Amino acid sequence: MRPIVRGLIASLLSNSLVALLLLIVLMVFVLPFLSTQNSLVGRIIQDLLFALVLLNGLILLMDRHKGLILTPVALVALLAIGVRGIGWLFPDSFTVEIREGTTLLALALISVATAMKVFASGVVTLDRISGAVALYVLMGTVWAEAYQLVILNHPGAFSGSTLAETTSDRSIWIYFSFVTLTTVGYGDIVPVAPAARSLANLEALIGQLYPAIVLARLVSLQVPRASSDPNKP
């Protein structure tokens, strides 16, 4: 029994970034498409996927890092999950700002954990490449949470026709974040406040630099292995 459990744990650790990518795609892109805003089923699935993403991030840290790094990340993850859980039991006990703030902090730390594994030394594998894509999507999600926090505290921070009815729809900020990250810039939502503009500028800059940095790192990991291959003609 123990060898089977150890085998399952080893398999999960070796493919943790692939699992993380699948969970994030489901949470960010698939679920909003299948469920309507404020849907009870959608909220339940969203919170479950969020918890699984955080759990997967902790598994990433268990692979290489313990103690000093794992403990604070685990505490923040538990706090974020706990805030969401209490929100179901006592809806009026926590404001939206606290929920979004803990979500932002937890996802930011999971992004750091993912980056540590993606950019670490080692072999270029499907798991590492999946992690690089997952990190890109995570960054867009973190910025979406940041935009939502800005609009909650400064209602006039953004302008646009799509904001006329509601600014609490998370899918709006997911959309705006990835439009900014990929520098598409449709112009239907425009940052007006200084904080909103600074966030948008930083995200656009990272969106341009990240693919080049990842490609350079993956090439730097692969070239030495290819040049040292004894079977190479």
Rank of each mutant, 00 (worst) to 15 (best):
M1K: 07
M1G: 11
P3V: 09
P3L: 09
I4T: 14
R6W: 10
L8D: 02
A10Y: 07
L13H: 06
L13Q: 12
N15V: 00
N15W: 05
S16T: 10
L17F: 02
L20T: 01
L20M: 14
L21D: 01
L21K: 00
L23R: 06
I24L: 15
I24H: 08
M27I: 02
M27S: 11
M27T: 00
V28E: 12
L31Q: 15
S39A: 15
R43V: 02
D47Y: 08
L48G: 07
L48A: 13
L48R: 01
F50T: 11
V53I: 15
L54H: 07
L58F: 09
L60D: 00
L60N: 05
R64G: 02
R64K: 15
L68V: 15
I69V: 15
P72V: 06
A74M: 14
L75A: 15
I81Q: 03
I81D: 02
R84Q: 12
R84E: 03
I86R: 00
D92C: 00
S93A: 15
F94D: 03
E97G: 00
I98G: 01
R99L: 11
R99W: 05
G101V: 05
G101A: 06
L104S: 03
L105C: 05
A106M: 04
L107S: 03
A108G: 13
I110D: 04
T114N: 09
A115K: 05
V118P: 01
A120Y: 03
V123H: 13
T125I: 07
L126A: 14
L126H: 04
S130Y: 00
S130V: 02
A132F: 05
V133I: 15
V133C: 09
L135V: 05
L138E: 06
G140K: 04
L149R: 09
L149I: 15
V150R: 05
L152P: 02
L152E: 11
N153G: 11
P155I: 10
P155S: 10
G156S: 04
G160F: 08
G160N: 07
A164Y: 05
E165D: 13
T166K: 11
T167W: 03
D169A: 13
D169H: 08
S171T: 07
I172C: 03
I172A: 02
W173D: 09
Y175E: 11
T180A: 13
T183A: 11
V184S: 12
G185W: 04
G187D: 07
G187P: 04
D188Q: 10
A195H: 04
A195K: 03
L199Y: 13
I206D: 01
A216L: 14
V219S: 03
S220K: 09
L221W: 02
V223M: 12
A226I: 14
S227E: 13
N231E: 12
